[in-house]
């Protein structure tokens, strides 16, 4: 029989092990992870005219461009490096060069940047970020990438935003449940939906002691549904399906089960919007803000 598919548990464990080894470099948040995955390095030669280099900066919405001759990095051309050096030019310099500043080669306006390794820890590059507004990745003869403060911001936002949005979602859901049922009713709903799962004696009684999936089971239970119907939408199956997906995502994020991708963040953001809409609607009905 072919083994191109997974056929037993032992095999799947080995598969996980192989994968884990391959992921070692991905587990730590080193500089390599912060440089955007889709970054395609754009460099310019030293003889390029400033006018053309600035046009490139504008076209790509970049702040700086590495200046490279052959394999060798000479420095970085940026709005800042240009402003610093152009400000020092006086009329006689310009007359002597017989060129407008835009016609001069970029090599006259480069500044030096520090280099970092892909394996460096994040704090190691903070100083360069602050002083130079960026850092080059690799070395003078091997330019691999460029890292800017905006890359850092995006990376940290992407890392943190699922946690923040999911906590908003979970807390909102709790509040909506509280608005829909009294404590007594909640306990009765919990027994209806969760008794099979926990046994009669161990059914959790407070929202804080319940899991997100418990919320889903309580809300979507046929007998409890009429109490929640107005709060999250009137189609039980649609609401239940959404809570199922949210629960999966929540567990993947909070239990670090897998890498959270851009599409996941987008989905979480959409669910956050869904709950925000219903929270606002409920607030308006109750005469709130």
């Amino acid at each position: 029989m072919s083994d191109e598919h997974i056929t037993d548990d032992g095999a799947s464990d080995k598969l996980e092990a192989v994968r884990a080894l391959d992921l070692v470099s991905k587990l730590f948040h080193q500089v390599n992870r912060v440089v955007p995955a889709d970054q395609q390095l754009l460099t310019i030669p030293p003889e390029m005219a400033v006018r053309d280099a600035i046009a490139l900066l504008q076209e790509h919405r970049f702040s700086q461009l590495p200046v490279v001759a052959g394999e060798r990095v000479l420095g970085v051309f940026s709005y800042r490096s240009f402003a610093h050096k152009a400000a020092r030019l006086n009329a006689s310099d310009i007359t002597k060069q017989k060129s407008a500043p835009g016609d001069l080669p970029v090599e006259d306006f480069v500044e030096t940047f520090e280099f970092a390794s892909v394996h460096d820890e994040m704090p190691k590059v903070f100083e360069s970020m602050e002083n130079d507004n960026g850092i080059l990745i690799g070395s003078h003869d091997k330019l691999i990438g460029i890292l800017t403060p905006m890359d850092f911001l995006r990376y940290l936002y992407e890392l943190a935003s699922p946690f923040v949005m999911l906590s908003e979602i979970e807390l909102t859901l709790r509040e909506l449940i509280r608005l829909a049922v009294s404590q007594e009713e909640l306990e009765a709903c919990a027994i209806l939906s969760l008794e099979n799962l926990y046994g009669a004696e161990k059914v959790p009684k407070t929202l804080e002691s319940m899991t997100f999936d418990n919320y889903r089971m309580i809300i979507s239970h046929g007998e409890s549904w009429p109490k929640f119907q107005g709060l999250l939408g009137s189609n039980r199956t649609l609401v239940s399906g959404k809570l199922r997906e949210l629960c999966e995502l929540r567990n993947d994020v909070f239990h670090f089960k897998r890498e959270i991708k851009a599409a996941d963040r987008e989905t979480i953001r959409e669910y956050r919007q869904w709950l925000l809409f219903h929270a606002r609607k409920t607030e308006a009905r109750r005469g709130g803000m």
Binding site: S25, K26, N32, V35, E71, S117, H119, G138, K142, G145
Partner: peptide, 19 residues
């Protein structure tokens, strides 16, 4: 074998003689 994605590629570049 090695699965090569962008991050692995950068590591390989750094370890190689030429990028």
């Amino acid at each position: 074998s090695l699965i090569v994605d962008r991050f692995r590629f950068r590591e390989m570049q750094e370890a190689a003689e030429t990028v």
